[in-house]
Design a protein around this nucleic acid. Sequence first.
DNA 1: TGCATTTGACCTGA
DNA 2: TCAGGTCAAATGCA
Length: 296
Amino acid sequence: MMMEEKLVINELEQGRELAKRLMSNLKHTSSIESSKTLISEILRIYQNAIFMLSVNEDDKNIILKRTREIDNKDSKNVSKKRKISEEKKTEKVKVFVGAGQEKGSSIDDGWCWRKYGQKEIHGSINPRGYFRCTHRFTQNCLAVKQVQKSDTDPTIFEVKYLGEHTCNNSSPKTTTTKFSVSMLEEENRAHVTEQPEDIKPKKTEEVMISLEDLEDKKNIFRTFSFSNHEIENVGGWKSNIFPETLMENLSPATSGSGITSEIVAAPASVENSETADSYFSSLDNIIDFGQDWLWS
DNA sequence: TGCATTTGACCTGA
DNA sequence: TCAGGTCAAATGCA
């Protein structure tokens, strides 16, 4: 089996386990917070899986090469202070570049990060930002990520994840699954109809706003797109992610604000795959379920 | 006032 | 020796 297929399967298996836990949670407990956290985790895992299925061959080769290098180093039992032997996962995240991003702030991937350094990288125009989990000291969470803006496309950020989150992700901000939605929310507020004061987004309720919003699916996926810009079969890709009914409900104003241009099609091999279709269908169900549950 | 960010210095591996 | 990664004091912000 190909290495990337194993990685995807691993991600999806994690998603399945989390979904089971979520179901159990809903049956046996009334802990809304833990269920929200599980939903966020599931969405993140499916995002990773979709990304793995959709990266182009060059990106796959880079990821595989790094994975093998890591494996080799592990097998030699080399222990260095630099985190070269830790699990590393690289994502390319295309974002709307707003003011916050220009300042080099962290890409909001649902976790709570604290910036601890920035370095000019030899041969790169843009500096690399270093982030660690906010709960590093309180919960001994060793997750770290590096964010660097692409030299060729300023709307693409390469994000490297090192280490796993061991924190319980209890920060209000960390329970969101927005994938860099924040800047777009700023943009969207100009278009969104006025809401009553009491439901304006508050920091502690971002997950509710995020999941309650009818356009949430659109927000999630339009702010996370894939590095394969060559393939533009948007209809097939979008129809996998967004049900037709949802697409019909999107207002022209909002769909014209960038969503169609920012969602990049999956490779044909993914689009034509029944397996992949079922994954996307599951994702829809998960998102639908999350919204219905939160509304109820 | 507490927390996050910035940034120069320092450390480490290649 | 140099590039990349981390530390920690200074600074900013709510």
